[in-house]
Amino acid sequence: MRISTAQLFSQNINSILNKQSATSQIIDQLSSGKRVNTAGDDPVAAIAIDNLSQQNALVDQYMKNIDYANNRLSLTESKLGMAETLASSTREQVLRAVNGTLSDTDRQTVADQLRGTLEELLAIANSKDESGNYLFSGFETNVQPFTFDVSGNIVYSGDNGVRSSIVASGVTIGTNVPGDSAFMNAPSGLGDFSANYLSSQVGDFNVESAKISNPATYVADTYTFTMAGANLEVRDSSSTLVTTVAGFDPSTPVQFNGIEVKLDGMPAAGDSFSITPQSSVSIFDTINQAISLIEDPNKVNTPQGKAELAQILNNIDGGVNQISTERGVSGTALKSLESYSTNHVDEKIVNSSALSLLEDLDYASAITELEKQQVALQAASSVFSKVGSVSLFDYI
């Protein structure tokens, strides 16, 4: 078969170009340290490498989210721990203040200490993170959560939003505790009501519990209890008689309109008190009530003062427990973050190991192959130069 000069040149050029391309590819691999630099190098491996790279990128984002959540939750847990300690100390201060041996000056000193504790607690509740965002304001991170209203009461201006971070596929973890959950919505010490006592109280008693026992028959209202001789009368806000307990015995709860009320102690004839629906209390209001009680020398050691004291102590306990509960929520979330972080680190190691097997270059094999390709390229170039120089005139 005859081969034209054009064919000969074309075949030799293609051979040289192929050898140059193969050599260049190996040089690229050696410079990058990767066996697969483009999909053309190994289409199947390239798809697997792309998938693993995407998984690693996702894991990296999860780890960033975990770091963010961990920082916020660690700060939140720390602040709630400080708040829990402060709130717990108020109980001891209140009990010390109602000691009958203290003078009015001594009680005022304790009241001033309680006021300082309240200010510290308020400062904690208005804490900010490193970015200047309020920790306990829910979604309203630029709004100071706790402020005084015109009446001097502490009110909550945030919301109950919980900001979440995605820490794994389909898994979100809250990164904050709303201020109302931690400081404003502690369960009432009595249950579902608060009690109001009169200065005319003579009997040594207080409301131990007041709860909704039957929601189906419950009638919301303010109810007044009055000892009429040996009987206990219960009237609603319109002074309509609701029930009369003949021969009242404080060991037996009073039940009416889906409500159950239990007293600790026996009211004297003519004693009266009322209960108002209130299922949650604020630790700030409770401390303020304690301060008012301690600063009133005409009430602190009276039957009325002792009854109010029992309710205040119960509400302090409820407030401390509420802060502790929310602190526990933060601690549980931190433990979950640690677990997810460990899982992601392990996943990243497995993915990186698989990537290494797919794309990392075997330098010894690559260098050997490079030398072979260079020898082949030199041989092809030498043959082409010699064949290309052959002329018919040399043989005439």
Rank of each mutant, 00 (worst) to 15 (best):
V207D: 04
S274Q: 11
F136H: 00
N288K: 09
S89Y: 09
H344A: 11
Q311G: 11
G191R: 12
Y363E: 06
T244Q: 13
A379C: 10
D129A: 04
Y223A: 08
G158A: 09
T85M: 06
I166F: 13
N56P: 03
F225H: 01
S336G: 05
K34G: 08
A186V: 10
E77P: 04
E326T: 12
E77A: 14
S213H: 11
L135I: 13
I312M: 13
N288G: 13
Q54C: 01
S4A: 05
K335D: 15
I367K: 03
S336R: 14
E308L: 05
T240N: 15
S188L: 10
G319K: 11
Y134V: 01
S272V: 08
Q201E: 11
T38K: 08
N133L: 05
I275L: 10
T101I: 10
N70G: 15
L392T: 09
G33F: 06
A376C: 07
E119V: 06
S103N: 01
V281M: 10
R115F: 01
D271N: 02
D192I: 04
G265T: 02
G132M: 09
I259S: 10
I49E: 01
D180K: 15
S89I: 06
A182R: 02
P277Q: 13
M266Q: 13
I287R: 00
S365K: 14
E347M: 15
S32N: 13
M63F: 09
